[in-house]
Amino acid sequence: MDIRAGLQSGNKRAVARLITMMENNDPEAFNIIKENYVKTGNAKIIGITGPPGAGKSTVTDKLTKLLRQKGKKVGIVAVDPTSPFSGGAILGDRIRMNDLSTDEGVFIRSMGTRGALGGLSKAANGAVKILDIYGLDYIFIETVGVGQSEVDIIKLADTVVMVMVPGLGDDIQAIKAGIMEIGDVFAVNKSDRDGAERTATEINMMLDLNKQGKYRPSVVKVIASENNGIDKLLEQIENHIEFMNTSGEYLSRKRMSITTEIVEIFRDNIIHSLKELSEKTRVIEATVERVLTKEIDPYTAANEMYEILRKKEVGNSD
């Protein structure tokens, strides 16, 4: 399969294969992304996050259908947890999106977290780039069901939609740090249930305590399964995108996310080099033994390995 040609002509099979290659750390996939990097930046990237069972997939499905009515092309990257024991996963987000499968203007990709802890997979970032190059107008990233601290989505999305449901706890939950701080738009889903009004009020009160001058996220009550309130939700998403573009917030968020991305790639490269070196020299195993016998401490050990790696890199460039 010629991935490059397929990517140019918009062949879904080629796009899908490129995502797989990238997910499996195939260097060729990164070469293709590098060649096409200038084509990224056209899609609006929207994160959909919230606790398990809140209705993230259903909200994503309904938002996508509304955007399709407006003639927009949509990508969805849906992340579900990988088993820490078997490495396997059940990726079930498509269940709520079945009618979208055959829509020419929609591309859905499911991913396992594969050990990442921040609510996304490491490859989610690359998948978004590939779908952006493929030429979609909107890309949704659906995180795993989050608890309180899985906030990696802010590094990737321009706008974060926090999907909440009534009855998850008292109002102190709303003022804790963590996921409640990252929403740009709040959707209170299943709002025909008892307590929806109270949940919306509590979120609003929390948002009123935020620093003035910053963007004030809005709270939208929806019943996603009945397609109720989805138009208002999309309106608020567009509203936030508009604010980001006019206030310069977009650029400062992008600067932050690119910084994080480069640092993460840099760190991964160093770890990769160290593992490669250790496969030949067994330096990690040898150092572990020295720490075990208290000959040195872990801090000194890490410094020593860093120095070995640095000298090796300097040696290579000579």
């Binding site: 396997g88 059940i90 990726l91 079945n98």
Partner: peptide, 15 residues
Amino acid sequence: ARALRDAGMEVIYTG
């Protein structure tokens, strides 16, 4: 689906 997951596979379950 569960058995394949436990065998280390990524299972896309579509319902």
